[in-house]
Design a protein around this nucleic acid. Structure first.
Length: 270
DNA sequence: AGACGTACCTGACCGC
DNA sequence: TGCGGTCAGGTACGTC
């Protein structure tokens, strides 16, 4: 599921757990992308002090100087349940003092759960060397121009590089490039300042819109469903290669770039 | 250093 | 119905 808007939605949906104490946990024996650095036993009795997000990682700070890091990989989902019945691919479960359960389910197992000392969080293999958050002010035209100036790789792949900017995955870069009318095939260092400014603003706009829509599904969860829902995507180019451009009615295109599918309009995006 | 291919996994879907 | 091929929203690593 997850790109940045989905993780942000999950974070907002589980933030109410702050202040709860972990009563018990379960970790499946299946191997995830990385194994926890520390014994998870110290989770028991720990109180959640803060839940936040960095890039596509969920960070859960505990009152025992330790922090949980959760990553959802390609297929991971987090849900909150009022009672727990095991289903296939449940890999990590926490039971809290309010009797709710947080469940991490991930069929492809590209995600992970890790426990580290909070003072070493920034040095974690996954968190060190990350670029800026796309919605923060330090992700701007001047910064991006500098980053792209020596990159000959296509702009689409460059934008999916976590060292340049985090959390922009395949869906949202396709949508952002369409929104800014820039062809995904262009070499990154070929874009001028104006185009880079447009791209920065499109990335922020598209992500904010998706987060806003994702947030609305959380209220459904609170009222009825018992699970955190995801944004019902409304894409203009992603997965629409058999359809026509909503702007110019041209047939949309699909190509492969560095192993990933790219969708775009060859007329609108130059 | 940057570009690029590949590996990690399961499941869904499509054509034969 | 079953089988093989291909694809999927991410990330890390090896090689040139």
């Amino acid at each position: 599921m997850p790109e940045l808007p989905e993780i942000e939605t999950v974070k907002n949906g589980i933030k109410y757990l702050e202040g709860n104490v972990i009563k018990s946990y379960f970790k499946s024996s299946k191997k995830l992308r990385i194994s926890p650095n520390q014994d998870l036993k110290s989770l028991i009795g720990a109180k959640i002090t803060r839940i936040s997000r960095r890039a596509r990682y969920l960070i859960i700070n505990l009152d025992n100087s330790k922090s949980l890091i959760l990553h959802l990989g390609m297929s991971g989902k987090i849900s909150i349940r009022s009672n727990y019945k095991p289903i296939k691919h449940d890999h990590f479960i926490c039971n809290f003092t309010d009797e709710s359960y947080l469940v991490f389910n991930d069929p492809r197992r590209f995600g992970f759960v890790d426990l580290v000392n909070t003072d070493l969080l920034a040095q974690h293999q996954s968190l060190a060397n990350l670029g800026p958050e796309p919605l923060e002010d330090d992700f701007n035209q001047a910064y991006l121009s500098k980053q792209l100036s020596n990159k000959k790789i296509n702009i689409k792949t460059a934008m999916m590089n976590n060292k340049i900017v985090v959390g922009v995955g395949n869906i949202y870069i396709n949508e952002s490039l369409f929104d800014s009318k820039i062809s995904p095939l262009r070499p990154a260092n070929d874009l001028n300042k104006l185009e880079i400014a447009r791209l920065v603003s499109s990335v922020k706009k598209i992500l904010k819109k998706a987060i806003k829509a994702g947030g609305s599904s959380i209220s459904d969860y609170k009222n009825a469903k018992g699970e955190i829902g995801y944004f019902q995507h409304d894409f203009k180019v992603y997965d629409r290669d058999l359809e026509k451009c909503l702007i110019c009615k041209n047939q949309l295109s699909k190509v492969r770039q560095n192993g990933r599918s790219t969708f775009y309009c060859s007329k609108c995006q130059k």
